[in-house]
């Protein structure tokens, strides 16, 4: 199988590392070769955070470049615009519609481009937009946005639902597992 690429884009603190960990686990359990490239350190302090997940028979590069991603999962609305260039022409953008204002917007230096998803759709990008924040809150915590979006992504994989759940159990602390199972289900059924 050719290498497939998934990009997770979010804001520092939104739990993109945990999402990539879950994805890595489920793909490893399916016996794929897997590479997950993370960003630690300064970039996490409320900044834009990007994580790459690649899998296939044999994965070489740990990073994803322009026009290579099969999926872009954006945890925040404008991050989808920031990283849309990573998608293949027929790649799929899964995005949270939540808005988190970056500092230049907060200080009033620039406007938040609210219509970014319409523009990307007009340009021909296939978009699945969900209010992951609302679903996460329904599951019990705003922090579960990451797992809601993984549920949405899982619909595109030929991996049985219970295998995702067992990967979730291997990834998440027992005290938070029920909440995250619920979040995953809400994303999966959305």
């Amino acid at each position: 199988m050719n290498t497939k690429s998934i990009v997770i884009a979010g804001v520092g603190g939104q739990g993109s590392l945990l999402a990539s960990k879950l994805l890595g686990k489920v793909l490893l359990n399916e016996n794929y070769d897997v590479k997950v490239s993370e960003v630690h350190g300064m970039s996490q302090r409320g900044g834009s955070v990007i994580t790459y997940v690649r899998y296939g028979d044999r994965v070489y590069s740990p990073v994803v470049q322009s026009g290579e991603a099969d999926f872009l999962i954006s945890f925040e609305r404008i991050e989808s615009g920031r990283y849309a260039h990573l998608l293949k022409k027929d790649g799929i953008l899964i995005t949270n519609t939540q808005q988190i204002a970056p500092m230049p917007v907060i200080t009033g230096a620039v406007q938040y481009p609210e219509t970014i998803l319409d523009e990307l759709t007009a340009k021909g990008i296939q978009i699945e937009a969900i209010n992951a924040l609302a679903l996460a809150e329904q599951a019990g915590s705003a922090k579960a946005v990451n797992i809601v979006l993984m549920g949405q992504l899982a619909k595109h994989f030929h991996i049985a639902y219970d295998k995702w759940i067992s990967a979730l159990e291997q990834t998440i602390k027992p005290v938070f597992i029920e909440l995250n199972k619920k979040a995953f289900q809400l994303g999966y059924e959305s």
């Binding site: 409320g46 900044g47 322009s66 970056p102 406007q111 938040y112 481009p113």
Partner: peptide, 20 residues
């Protein structure tokens, strides 16, 4: 040959790291 991709025309505001 470069891979094909799409970019928005809208400028996306920078999201630099900040103090929490």
């Amino acid at each position: 040959p470069a891979k094909e991709f799409i970019t928005p025309d809208t400028e996306i505001p920078m999201r630099p790291p900040v103090m929490c």
